[in-house]
Design a protein around this nucleic acid. Sequence first.
DNA 1: CCAGACGTTGTT
DNA 2: GTCTGG
DNA 3: CCAGACGTTGTT
DNA 4: GTCTGG
Length: 240
Amino acid sequence: MCGRFALRTPTLQMLEIFNLVEMPALAPRYNIAPTQLVICIRSVAEDPKSREVVQMKWGLIPFWAKDIAIGNQMINARAETVAEKPAFRAAFAKRRCLIPADGFLEWQKLSTGKKQPWLMEMAEQQPFAMAGLWEYWTPKGDSTAKPVVSCSIITTSANEDMSVLHDRMPVILPIEAWATWLSPTANATQCTALLKSLENGQLTKTCVSTKVNRPFPDNAQCLQPVDPPEPLTKPMAEEG
DNA sequence: CCAGACGTTGTT
DNA sequence: GTCTGG
DNA sequence: CCAGACGTTGTT
DNA sequence: GTCTGG
């Protein structure tokens, strides 16, 4: 799954990789947590072939939600059901986005009960694009309020690289898939076909400081490599 | 008809 | 907004 | 995802 | 144990 990630890539490199005209200069992020603002890339409404960067609240608030806090539980959407679930289907049909990252975190449960974070990265810390959805929400009865724009990260079954840590992982879209995913006119079949787990052999795992366990602070020390306190072993299969 | 849910993960 | 359950 | 709170009344 | 907030 994906409940925490990092984006440290400099702005200039982001512009090139994601083919963006402009984006706000952003400080490197080492510890991006749910409910915070995250960077999303979406197609421009008036010109769907071009892309824009928008900051959105992580945790998709369905447009019909009565309470903004519902978004706190919508940080991920399952690829298997995203097209049908009431909370996500409208966004899946029309409001898809890329959520760039250059690392995401998964926690290993130690025999002591403590939680050991591992940082998953691509070769040379290259940034990648997670498949996302976005939505806008306005508190009911308050027409003066600005809509809240929020997003969710789609998950799928874990590949072999990930399976020692979890049975789910974020959908990472290869560059060839970006245009289709962002196209507001792509159909559901095309989009669903893109929601696969990443090919094995691309993700590295680095054991990092437990400083990243707390949603605050957000600094380089959070991702400082450390020696693994216990080896990573595949969890035993459930007994039958 | 109205009321109430609408989600994922992990753990048991 | 839309579906499910009562 | 993890961490931290989890409550009310009355008084300042 | 379970919910809320970041």
